[in-house]
Computed example of a mutant assay.
Amino acid sequence: MWKTVLKRFLLMIPQLVILSLLVFILAKLMPGDPFSGQITPTTDPKQIEALRIKYGFYDPWYQQYWRWITNIFHGDFGTSYTFKLPVSTLLAQRVGNTFWLSLLCVTFLYALALPLGIFSGRYSGGKFDKAVTFYNFVTYAIPGFIFYLIMILVFGYTLHWFPASGSVDAGVTGFAYVISRLRHMLLPAICYAMIATTGTVQYLRNEIIDAKASDYVRTARSKGVPIDKVYTHHIFRNSLLPIAAFFGFTLTGLISGSVFMETIFGYPGMGKLFIEAIQSRDYSVLTTLIMIFGFMTLVGSLLSDIIMSIVDPRIRIE
């Protein structure tokens, strides 16, 4: 198994090289440059031109690419043209926020989706199942950003139960700091969990309904195995396989894909930084973030395979 894991990591190298080429070329094809936004009626064009020459914007593209990729291997992601800070410093400030928010989102997601899917599948056709089906229909139909804005309006500005933006209150320390961080993460995490349960609930519900009609379930019931034990030891475990297959993508996808959630909630994470980099044409930040997001996607694929081999003994990565 571990040999295959190593091979998969080695296979990531050419994939990341291809990704880096695409990212670099597409970034260069964007209109303008990082210094275009600094031009005002009083700006001396010679100063802007000097900056472009200083940062090598007129060098051949392959020289720029080689310089960029070499610096990355040395841990130098460049300097943000907008924030005037090393990109590594910016990432260090934001990655913790995104990680803890993503972890809380995944926790709430499965805490809500698993019970809904299990009981909906077990009592399919009943009132609870119909209520869950209606809930899935509503959450699937409503756009996420609309739902986020409504929740901010209701619970942030009207009821004042949760902060409407930010990641922590100013000037708090100690245990109050931890509570403040948690309060700022609760609303976006709850909102994400409510919207993102649809796929997990439907997968689990359908798997349980199919498993109830399986031969091994009928055999267990004919031997007098209690119905609760049939569900916990047979149906539930086999029905978790599709959920386990997507767990790695769910976790890493949240870390790399929380762009809209962080932007709408004003949460200073990597997703919000990504939007800010696009708006300001901050190439150093933009290219670094896309490379990180691409790497996380590849890691998610590998993580899902490993989880599948652990959950189902019949599946082994050979």
Rank of each mutant, 00 (worst) to 15 (best):
T158M: 07
D169A: 15
L149D: 08
Y135R: 12
L159E: 05
L104R: 00
P115D: 01
T139C: 15
T89V: 15
L182M: 01
F99T: 09
L103N: 03
Y148C: 11
L101P: 03
M151A: 12
A113G: 07
Y157M: 05
G166A: 10
N97S: 14
A176T: 05
L116R: 03
S165V: 02
A111T: 11
V178W: 12
D169S: 14
A111R: 09
A111Q: 08
G156C: 01
G121N: 01
L187K: 06
F108K: 02
G126F: 00
Y110Q: 00
M185S: 05
V168Q: 13
A111K: 08
A176Q: 11
A92W: 12
I146R: 06
G174P: 01
I190N: 06
V172F: 03
H184I: 03
I190M: 09
K130E: 04
I179C: 08
F108Q: 01
G166D: 09
S88H: 14
T107D: 03
M151I: 07
K130Y: 04
R181L: 08
F137W: 14
V168W: 09
W161C: 06
A164W: 03
F137C: 13
S167H: 09
L91T: 07
V87H: 15
F147D: 07
A189P: 02
G144A: 10
F145W: 12
T133V: 13
L149M: 13
L149H: 04
S88C: 13
Y140P: 09
T173C: 12
W161R: 04
Y123D: 00
S180W: 06
F147T: 07
L103F: 12
Y177N: 11
F175E: 08
R122P: 00
A113Q: 09
A141Q: 09
V154W: 10
T173D: 14
V106W: 01
D129S: 05
R181Y: 10
V87K: 12
L109S: 04
G144C: 08
G156M: 01
M151T: 08
T173G: 12
Y123I: 00
F137A: 15
T89H: 15
V138G: 14
A164F: 04
L153K: 11
V106A: 05
A176S: 13
F134T: 12
L101E: 07
V106N: 00
L109R: 02
A131F: 15
L104Y: 00
A131T: 15
V178C: 05
G174H: 01
